[in-house]
Design a binder for these strands. Structure first.
Length: 196
DNA sequence: CGAGTTTGACCTGCGC
DNA sequence: GCGCAGGTCAAACTCG
């Protein structure tokens, strides 16, 4: 993984661990750590999480890159492509016992698939905020099931609900600190408020 | 009762 | 053209 340190500027309200914290060979204390992250965007088609997580070539990348493909596509097919063309993709790998990271957004699970060559199923989530088309895929690393590979696709068109919480915290100081950065769902020790 | 999850079916693209 | 694999849909189900 060589493209570390390229946080996606379009990924709203998403914070990144600094490079020196990214070392998946030195996990010691925390039950969760960000180990790797990848940025996929229209200008770097070579970086595809499928290439990262498997040897198989995926079709979704082509779908994103190619706005209009064959032309002989059905309306439904076009709809699919439109849905896919929601923005950038960003994948990262974390060491965590929990699969679902609480990144501050509200996700709705819409599918689950067993993946070939992987004992672990892949889960599909959509942002449940109305009008937001961001999706994410969550699956365990096939080579080391203690790692979770999360792939985000698209850009949120709204603020993270936890930003509201942060705002509320600053002004009311009553709500429990709800760190919205990468953290396991049930974690009670979020990284200290990351918003400056 | 509404929101979220589960899960089997369906659709599409790709490789052979 | 066929089969496989990945991704999505949607009805049924669960939970608060």
């Amino acid at each position: 993984m060589n493209n570390l340190g390229s946080p996606n500027p379009n990924f709203n309200n998403f914070s990144y661990f600094p490079d020196h914290n990214i070392d998946h060979h030195q996990h010691q204390s925390s039950e969760f750590e960000l180990s790797d992250y990848l940025l996929f965007d229209d200008h770097h088609p070579g970086f595809d999480e499928d290439a990262y997580s498997s040897q198989s070539k995926a079709s979704s990348d082509k779908i994103i890159m190619g706005g209009s493909s064959s032309g002989a596509t059905s309306e439904k097919n076009n709809m699919r492509k439109m849905k896919m063309e929601v923005g950038q993709r960003f994948a990262f790998r974390t060491k965590s016992e929990l699969e679902v990271m609480d990144d501050g957004f509200k996700w709705r699970k819409y599918g689950k698939k067993s993946v070939k060559n992987s004992p672990n199923p892949r889960n599909y989530y959509k942002c449940s905020t109305g009008g937001c088309q961001v999706k994410k895929r969550v699956e365990r690393d096939r080579e080391d099931s203690s790692y979770v590979i999360t792939t985000y696709e698209g850009t949120h068109n709204h603020e993270s609900p936890c930003v509201v919480y942060d705002y509320y915290n600053h002004h009311q100081q009553q709500m429990p600190q709800n760190g919205w950065t990468l953290q396991p769902n049930s974690s009670s020790s979020p990284p200290s408020s990351s918003s400056s």
